[in-house]
Design a protein around this nucleic acid. Structure first.
Lengths: 234, 234
DNA sequence: TTCATCATATCATCAGATGTTTTATGGATT
DNA sequence: AATCCATAAAACATCTGATGATATGATGAA
């Protein structure tokens, strides 16, 4: 089975052809889940490609979780191409209530950790975004205020000292931005209403007061949460 | 610059370290979007790795849309890692401690919600998996016991009535399976040690006792958490 | 100016060699 | 006979060199 025999005009991107071939072979069931692929030298002959080309293709599929390469043992088929959906895409087709519920959970844990682990540089960034938020509200620039608000909360997430948590929160915040924008324009009193709560949150993080940070955030989320769940209804 | 220390879930590969390094360098803004990466020979010297290793890493990132490789021209940064990368893939290059910390947060919220919202069908599924878990432990089949354990916790996640939360938890549990397997084989007493806690958790969910469910889960996570953080050290 | 040609830089691919890890084989010991 | 340990074999990991293919910019002529 030589890949290059049935190819198109372009001999370039040979690695891509090997990737597609292996993917379709796995999908077609030529390789069962859990079965072992042929060893590299044999696969080289079967596919008619060099070692580098084959290894780059296998590495891509392994990094995507489709294959598992075990040094000294072999290469095994692990899964079909199912878990490949990006989180942002998954959230976009979810209910706002559910996304917000998880975001609330993440946010509470974030402020708790941030109060414990924040560094001085984190605090400076937070102060800057809070100032931007205040200035934007004074100038009646709702969009800028929302951006500053999100940036502030992302800065808090960064201060939590957990990159996975921060990444997760950023994705949630970005997804919810649309809904939040509608919320802020629907009642721009909310922005200034939570201004003092933001100040209190920053103060709690500054003084390492985790319980106060959680309490303040709970109050903050409740104000917005009520409106969000109303939006969901219709 | 030489890449060395790791602590990722899948650490045994130089290529994986190069992938992680490039991703974080792009995230940190060392390479702006649209900018051109150094040429292969230069990057080899900068990272202290050979050409095959570097090329395999670049190929993975290119296939994920993060980089664009143009023959005869160069390699360009096309997108930030965050929003395009599947979550399972993101977790695979994260620190065990961070993944487990977030998983703990999700799990506590899950049992709280499950105690409130569980249906009768949820309870039946949980009982079934708990029985499988018990039988596997009696038969000294650690792998089957771990699978049943994970299935049980996923069933609890389903009972929380939030598909986003359940999806998220499944991905975390699947990623941590490897580490958990090492944990269970290292000390198979842990499996039976937490058996009664699982029963108590199920009882708490049955009786809608959210606070008891959270307390029981906290105890459960603490037992495993200690061992996991020890694993991280070396 | 415009266009064809060429030189150079860069990636694509192949091939060989050596190191590291896992697994299986056999023999030795009890 | 069962267990344990050392060794060999298999398979992937990595490095290096060499050659081909492609894009870009320089060069020079019409």
């Amino acid at each position: 089975m030589n890949i290059k025999s049935n190819n198109t005009i372009k001999p370039s991107q040979l690695t891509g052809q090997v990737i597609e071939h292996l993917q379709s072979a796995i999908s077609a069931g030529e390789y069962a889940i859990g079965s072992k692929l042929s060893a590299e030298p044999l696969l080289m002959k079967e596919l008619g490609v060099g070692r580098s080309t084959l290894r780059e293709a296998i590495r891509v599929l392994a990094h995507n979780g489709m294959l598992e390469v075990r040094q000294g043992d072999g290469t095994y088929v692990r899964a079909l191409p199912s878990h490949k959906e990006p989180l942002a895409q998954r959230l976009r087709r979810a209910r706002i209530r559910e996304v917000n519920e998880v975001r609330r959970t993440l946010e509470l844990e974030i402020v708790r950790l941030a109060a414990k682990r924040r560094e001085e540089t984190d605090l400076e960034r937070m102060r800057g975004f809070l100032r931007m938020r205040h200035d934007a509200l004074s100038g009646n620039d709702a969009a800028a205020a929302l951006d500053a608000d999100i940036s502030f909360h992302c800065a808090v997430a960064n201060a939590a000292g957990n990159e996975v948590l921060a990444d997760l929160y950023r994705t949630f915040a970005f997804t919810l931005r649309e809904a939040l924008a509608a919320l802020w324009t629907a009642d721009d009193g909310k922005g200034s209403q939570t201004a003092d709560l933001h100040d209190k949150l920053l103060a709690a993080i500054e003084t390492h007061d985790a319980s106060q940070a959680v309490a303040t955030t709970t109050a903050m989320l409740d104000i917005h949460g009520a409106t969000l769940s109303v939006m969901e209804k219709e």
